[in-house]
Design a protein around this nucleic acid. Structure first.
Lengths: 119, 119, 119, 119
DNA sequence: GTGGTCTAGACCACT
DNA sequence: GTGGTCTAGACCACG
């Protein structure tokens, strides 16, 4: 994994997001063990507390669960993953829509271009 | 204007893009004078040559014109602005599509969500 | 190649033009690699940035393409070369016409002389 | 007059040529007095001998004549001017043809472009 | 070694 | 003052 952070959003959210992406995209399968706090902290060159904070977010969304000393694992509840996927997709879509409206691009042109490009 | 640059793309492109957005969105109208090389360089805290390079890009796309010692001006050819608008929109759309597919989100779900969110 | 520059036009344009001539005339074939920035800068005894600027022009006209670290290559799109040829020819012709009219030589005499000389 | 010389041809020829152009184009009329050697040498920042040499050329072509201490004058023989005009035009045309053939531009395309451009 | 980017600073002309 | 050009030199990414 390559880690790089922007300064416009909290680092812990950026970490949580990256893990979320890995789960949603299937890179991490349901039930898979995920890297430890210490390892991720090393890789990303951040403080372990920051990673801890990120994992807290992911546990709140029920994307991962801690099994004590065994480590942390991706949830095996596909429902929860699906929920996260929709939530994440929604964020991307909102960003997309705001990007487009920022350019005063009418909706019709947007959908028209969407069709063209997806071909 | 607030200027901040990421390190993953050339600064001159980020400047060019910002000006492009201003033109496309109508913040700068056709025929408007745009800030001088030196002024933008000051604002953005970059070398004047970097701004010059950015403007060169915009002139290649015919979005702006130099009137020599008078300064630089947004093109008064609406055609060219429209072209830039479509090109820019296309970039956003491609990014959007790649973001979505990166999450293994099928196209049907994308369009479905698009409708939900835009309501 | 022999390099000499006049002071009435930017050096980078004179370099770009010389390369253009080489491509148009067939000295460089489509797909051929062209000399590197540094080598040309040495030969022409100019700063590498000046050559870079010249190449930028040629890339805008799609006469050459950069293949990253592999070097720069003449386009393999004959269409683009043909376009450049016409553009270049047009420049010569315009110069010719302006030269002639500067001498108050009527068009009829010009064409008449053209025939005589070309025989 | 603005004077600038290239290094690829003798300066005295460049001076002679410039005067020739002035005569041919009608800037100097038949019988007009032309600037003195000293004045031209000053203007062009060259040695008077160089100007002298240029005038020698022009006298050989009968374009100008010296009237002793009165100065030099454009010939009032329009025949001679006409001859010079044709000779000069021929040079331009030869240059034009060599420029075009250097680019491997076929004659048909040349004449075709000539028509387009002259419109 | 090649291209790409960026900075610092200079000089010029004056659409 | 503005844009345009040019130089000198630096660092980076890619293989």
């Amino acid at each position: 994994m390559a880690w790089s952070f922007t300064s416009d959003r909290p680092v812990y959210l950026q970490i949580a997001e990256k893990v979320t992406r890995s789960v949603i995209s299937g890179e991490y399968s349901p039930g898979d063990q995920i890297p430890s706090v210490r390892q991720l902290a090393l890789e990303a060159a951040v403080n372990p507390n920051t990673v801890q904070r990120a994992f807290l977010e992911l546990e709140n969304e029920k994307l991962i669960r801690s099994k004590g000393t065994l480590g942390r694992f991706v949830t095996d509840n596909v429902e929860d993953i699906e929920k996260a996927r929709r939530k994440y997709a929604e964020r991307i879509i909102k960003k997309f829509i705001s990007d487009m409206s920022e350019l005063s691009i009418p909706v019709e042109q947007t959908t028209e271009l969407l069709k063209e490009v997806s071909l």
